[in-house]
Amino acid sequence: MGQGVLDVDDNNFESEILKADKPALVDFWAPWCGPCKAIGPAIKELEETYGNSIVFARCNVDNSPNTPTQYSIRAIPTLILFQDGKVVDQVVGAVPKSHLEELVKKVL
């Protein structure tokens, strides 16, 4: 069990994600996005399982325009996996939990 899903924004993205001492999975989302809501529970469940070894975070694209632009995000939800400040992999859309789990396992 980890610390819950962390909210990150343009201001703390570098310190919380890029300079984190653990790999991080960031969910780029918005409150009005149906598919984003639909995968929320799956991300929460994964956080409960893997939260000790990976930072689970989410970034609201409405409040933080710079970070999504930096990573050329054109669709939400987009989930990007970071390690040592670099992008390891990413998935787009409301994908099955098993798909997200495979992603997470790339850095375990």
Binding site: A30, W32, C33, G34, I73, R74, A75, I76, T78
Partner: peptide, 17 residues
């Protein structure tokens, strides 16, 4: 090209265009 120009949700992604 999903997520790099291909989208399945106008409401979600219109703002990126």
């Amino acid at each position: 090209l999903v997520g790099r120009g291909v989208s399945y949700c106008v409401d979600c992604d219109a703002n990126f265009y």
